[in-house]
């Protein structure tokens, strides 16, 4: 013990202390993880429930809303006028230049064609959850004839692109596929 005031070689005791300390830290972290991870979505929520929808009855100008993963997904059969409005917008006027389409490339631009269903420019499938703070925008409202979020005033156009207000991104398009001409599977 008399040598303890000189900066000596690390002793066996130092080694044991540090090793035990490091082991303890790892142990605490390993024990803590289950208590953090239990808060994440459980297996039943995570199960990628896909939904099949028949859209044969949805006439132009009509829309249906279905639930997918606890979130509303709108499927809108757009009128010719709405498609035209979506197409005429210049891309540089858009607040969010990306398509946000899970079925397209992540860097695809937000043109009307990249937002609508492939080969069916009148069909628009998207998650109707405002990208600001998660409210449900109202159909067929707002100054761009698309969607309007009543919570904090975000306005989306007929292709679901953010045009005005605090929301940062276009309404996201979930992964989906046409099973037949009128049947869609979402998820």
């Amino acid at each position: 013990m008399a040598e303890s005031d000189t900066p000596a070689e690390p002793t066996r005791r130092d080694f044991l202390l540090h090793a035990a300390g490091a082991f303890g830290v790892v142990g605490v972290a390993a024990a803590a993880w289950p208590f953090i991870d239990q808060m994440n979505p459980d297996a039943s929520t995570r199960a990628l429930a896909s939904v099949e929808v028949d859209i044969a009855a949805v006439q132009p100008g009509q829309a249906i809303t279905i639930m997918w993963r606890g979130k509303p997904v709108v499927i809108r059969n757009r009128t010719e006028k709405e498609v035209e409005e979506g197409k005429t917008v210049k891309l540089e006027e858009l607040k969010d230049p990306l398509a946000r389409n899970a079925n397209a490339d992540a860097s695809a631009d937000a043109s009307d064609a990249n937002r609508a269903a492939a080969g069916k420019e009148n069909i628009l499938v998207m998650t109707k959850v405002c990208t600001h703070l998660g409210c449900i925008p109202l159909d067929e409202s707002g100054e761009f004839g698309g969607w309007f979020c009543p919570c904090h005033g975000s306005v989306y156009d007929t292709a679901g692109r953010i045009r005005k207000g605090p929301a940062p991104e276009n309404l996201p398009i979930p992964p989906y596929a046409f099973l037949s001409d009128t049947k869609i599977r979402i998820g």
């Binding site: 953090i36 979505p41 929520t45 606890g70 998660g134």
Partner: peptide
């Protein structure tokens, strides 16, 4: 959804807080 404003970690934090993809 306030937490989703944080870059990168926001979305996972929100999912962790609400334990799902929406409040349930």
């Amino acid at each position: 959804n306030f937490f989703t404003a944080l870059p990168f970690v926001g979305q996972p934090i929100q999912t962790l807080l609400i334990g799902g993809f929406s409040v349930d």
